[in-house]
């Protein structure tokens, strides 16, 4: 199958998305010309990298009709583990690449754990991942303790995310690779096709011999792994370890996927669309700051815009008899 046709479902309306994004950029540029500057757009790309990585995992899980709330907790735990194994103000040994392996491994294990509990004990993913979230935060808090702030002492590491390669920040390249992997996973692997099948009709998937339980566990595992990975990147960007390094990410990632048309009931949506959703939200957020909205009002204004955006996106699908839960 040629690629264009295959991604057809995912790319649907991609052009209208480009128009929307362009409109947002034009409007904010009028308010503050600095918005469209190269530096600021690079800044937007850096800001977008963490949610972009997260949205890949979130989309996989939402496509199955489940939800993963554990993002911020896993980010905190993985971020703390990573920084304590890397050159930091508390000293300790620099484990180099092993820090990455262990930190993402923690994410993977927490994700797999959510998946196992969700499938084998048949607990709603909503509740399980709410638990994993707190387990992650707990882990991070214990590691944080009450000693010295673990700030990153290696300049090479702390500057890596914002440093440019071929004109674009490194962290954005990293996120792009993850998004690309997500696109390929959905389009060209049996796991990806299985995830779509489960989201469309789970009982039918069972009867058709789709390995539902392994696929679900794998999807939660991947989501956990990516949350861990994003936790490392966020910690690097912050320059020091903090249990709350992922604060606010959940409220970017899930609305981004929903605005982009990923149905919470599963089966519909895709990586490309979710990624565009992230860009829209990050641009809005950045634009509000540059537009000089009072910091006290920013959160409220952002929330209101989010609600309006979701209503607008859902408008064509509204039906008097459609059930929304």
């Amino acid at each position: 199958m040629d690629k264009r046709k295959l991604l057809h479902g995912d790319w649907q309306g991609a052009t209208s998305w480009v128009v929307i994004l362009a409109l947002v950029i034009i409007v904010f540029s009028f308010i503050n010309p600095r918005f469209a500057s190269i530096e600021n757009l690079r800044n937007v790309l850096v800001q977008a990298s963490v949610p972009l990585m997260l949205v890949v995992g979130a989309t996989l899980v939402i496509l199955m009709g489940s939800i993963d709330l554990s993002v911020q907790g896993i980010m905190g735990a993985a971020g703390m583990v990573w920084i304590l194994m890397s050159p930091n103000a508390r000293g300790g040994i620099d484990y180099g690449a092993w820090a990455w392996v262990v930190a993402t491994g923690i994410g993977l294990i927490l994700g797999l754990l959510s998946g196992v509990i969700h499938t084998l004990f048949r607990v709603p993913s909503f509740v399980v991942t709410l638990g994993t979230w707190n387990v992650g935060v707990g882990l991070a808090t214990i590691l944080y303790g009450d000693s010295l702030l673990p700030s990153l002492t290696s300049e090479a590491l702390s500057q890596w995310p914002t440093r440019l390669t071929l004109g674009l920040p490194n962290s954005f390249w990293l996120a792009s690779i993850v998004v690309l992997a997500g696109i390929l996973l959905i389009g060209f692997t049996q796991l990806g096709r299985g995830i779509l099948a489960i989201g469309n009709n789970e009982p039918l998937a069972v009867v058709n011999g789709v390995p539902v339980i392994p696929i679900k566990i794998a999807a939660f595992g991947i989501a956990g792994l990516l949350s861990g990975f994003a936790g490392i990147l966020a910690t690097m960007q912050l320059g020091s370890g903090a249990p709350g390094v992922g604060a606010g990410q959940l409220f970017t990632v899930i609305p981004a996927a929903v605005i982009a048309g990923t149905a919470l009931s599963g089966g519909e949506g895709g990586m490309v669309r979710s990624a565009l959703g992230v860009f829209l939200l990050i641009l809005l957020n950045n634009g509000l700051v540059l537009a000089g909205v009072d910091p006290n009002y920013q959160s409220g204004v952002f929330g209101a815009i989010l609600v309006i955006a979701i209503v607008a996106v859902d408008w064509p699908q509204r039906d008097r008899l459609r059930v929304a839960k």
Binding site: L196, N200, A205
Partner: peptide, 14 residues
């Protein structure tokens, strides 16, 4: 019993 979000070919191949 078809997956509506998959292609005809995938459904036949199920």
């Amino acid at each position: 019993s078809l997956f509506t979000n998959l292609t005809v070919a995938e459904n036949i191949d199920q």
